[in-house]
Design a binder for these strands. Sequence first.
DNA 1: GCACATCATATGCGGGCGCCTATCGTTTCG
DNA 2: CGAAACGATAGGCGCCCGCATATGATGTGC
Lengths: 141, 141
Amino acid sequence: MATERPDLAAMLYPLVRELIALELPILAAHEVSMWGYSVLSTLDDTPVRTQAALAQAIGADKSRIIGTLDELQQAGLIDRTPDPDDRRVRLLSITAQGRRVRRAVRKDIQAREESVLTALSPADRKTFIRLLVEIRNAKDS
Amino acid sequence: MATERPDLAAMLYPLVRELIALELPILAAHEVSMWGYSVLSTLDDTPVRTQAALAQAIGADKSRIIGTLDELQQAGLIDRTPDPDDRRVRLLSITAQGRRVRRAVRKDIQAREESVLTALSPADRKTFIRLLVEIRNAKDS
DNA sequence: GCACATCATATGCGGGCGCCTATCGTTTCG
DNA sequence: CGAAACGATAGGCGCCCGCATATGATGTGC
């Protein structure tokens, strides 16, 4: 029988809350919303063709993503150009400036986020992150 | 320099989403809300004196917790008795039936939740959970 | 060619949550 | 005693989200 332990969600949820609270001021300082940052990260890492695909990738509703894209485009962080092959589609791409912003935000976030893992030894911290990356990479397939 | 990796939140958040989606039908089957289950778990593990303290413990707003407590009390899962020493306070405690429900729900949840960790080997899965427990226990202090 | 699917976009609805305020009973402290 | 603090409760406000739906432009298959 498994030893008694809290549910995974009961342990992960407070962690996520803490991380979000940590990120909000950083995002605000860079004048990007959480969704905006999420979009920039996705576009920077993996090219996405349609907006619907992007919405699904970041777990957002396709009707709610439009405002975010408008803001990002207005700020010059992404481009939305009509696809010559399928003129219904707007091809999404991150601009050089968008990339810069994304990297700057990520740098700030990652500089602080390990503070939620202070309970772990440096070695355990590395292990924890490695396992998380493994889980995430497996989902992509 | 640290190797490039996604933010912790970007990896943890989808995991939490997946877990919540997994839990919802289970909670519904046992006729408990997510907040209700959270309350039962907290009361079962660590005695909490005031409702405000409980709200803080589960990260809920104190004005939103009352309805949840009403439901739990009505269902006979918790007791709310006035504290003889301080008649402003309602002492909260889980009932025997509440304990049964909590355990049943937890059993069902834990039976399914490791499915989100299928990317990990059994050994890595154990390690991951162990590290999570360590993080959580450190927060209690 | 025409019906149907697809994509981006816009809008409205309902629910839940955080936050803030008010009230009432009670306790504590000066 | 009187003022301030505290706990439980209640209600309202504004925000954001998921969901459903509409529409207009376009593409695809029969």
